[in-house]
Every structure is written in structure tokens, then in C-alpha cells.
Amino acid sequence: MIHLKNIARYYKRGFQKSWVLKDISLDINEGEFVTIMGPSGAGKTTLLNIIGMLDQADGGEYTFMHEPVHRFNERRRNELHKHHIGFVFQAYHLIDDLTVYENIETPLLYRGIKGKDRKSMVAEVLDRFNIVAKKDLFPEQLSGGQQQLVGIARAIVGRPKLLLADEPTGNLHTQQGIEIMDLFKQLHADGMTIIQVTHSEENAKYGERIVRLLDGFVRQDESSAKEEKSVS
């Protein structure tokens, strides 16, 4: 499903290039639950953003569902992105001025889904996540766990093929974290491809494959069971 080849990404600091990702090659199949780990600054989030098409690599090839993303313009990337990818953030990032219902509905608006269909899709997710009673509340009226629940609901309401989660439990208490991770497990069981970034070994156990990054390289890919040494 995802094929990354020699992906590189750098930022300019003054006249110097500061490399975040140097040479990443990675294949992820449909239905996998992958955890990306590594110390701070290893490039985890940057990699996730590139996979999620929020960011673009400076070099290398990225194929998503047989489409050469690295050759696409902004418009076509946006099309792919909004139809197939859902995002979950550490800080939830719900829109403050919208209710729970409206937050979940928003991605459907951008996909141009008709009002009637939107209603039933949102209702289904609300029901599935057990948050029907909260649908008219604003984010600030919810606890952190509940907000993240809404965040996940919003990410999957459009039935994406790929769910990307960046430290989804980072701001949560342990118990809430467990509940969220259970939810991911269940989504995975239902066939969703999930890539999560985390520092927590506990959370990593929910997945079936761990990719460890260090200084912009893949240091270890556990499911493939062989270490990829840096080529520098």
C-alpha cells in the first residue's frame, strides 16, 4: 500500500541544511498496524507528515496505493489525502468553535458528501463510539479522553484506508490511554491500516511491527526481523 524509497527531508537553517530524514525506505502493506519509534528529533513526525501528504519529501519516491505521490501536484495529493487518510493528534486539535457533531462532520464537507449521507455517517460513528449524548457539546466541555475519542471519530468517519496517529495518548491519563489504544486495536481488527508514532513501548505492543528511527535513518524494522544499517 505504501512504498517509500530513499525518502529525504531537510530544513534550511541559515545557509546550512539540517537533515531530518536522510534515507528512508519502507514498505507498508494494507491492514498492517505499524508503530514508528525513536528518540526526539529522529524524524518520526516528519515521516508521518510525509506519509500523510501534509509535507513533501525533498528526495526519494513515495507510492501510495500504486499512485506516485512524489510526482503529484497539490491538487491531486489533496484528493488522495482527503479520501484515504485520517489523522489523530496528540493535542486532539479539534476546532474550538464547532460542536462534537460538527467536528466529526467537517471532513465529509470537504469531500462533498451530501447532507443526508453525512448525517447517517456521523450518526453511525457517534453511536459506535458511544458519544451520542455529547454531540452538541463544544470541545472545551469534554475531558481529554473524550476529546481524543472525538478526534479518532473525526479521523475515521470518512472510512479512510489509512489512519495516522501522532502520539495519540501523549496527553492522556493511563486509563484513558488504554481505552484509546483498545479502540485502535479494534479498528485494526476491522481491517484499518494504522501507523502510529509513540514513545511508549506499551502502546507499541498493540501493533504488529515496530520501525525504529535514529537520526533520519531506519535503524530497525522488527517485523522484517532484520536490521537495516545506516549507509552513511
Binding site: N78, D97, Y110
Partner: peptide, 16 residues
């Protein structure tokens, strides 16, 4: 800005 950022991650284009 946060609203804009979130919307962009869930598929909003600049135009909309």
C-alpha cells in the same frame, strides 16, 4: 491558525 491547520489535515484545500 489552529482551525486552518486542522482543516487542512482533514482535507480542506486553500481555495475552500
Amino acid at each position: 491558525a489552529k482551525e486552518v491547520g486542522v482543516k487542512k489535515t482533514i482535507g480542506a484545500r486553500q481555495q475552500s
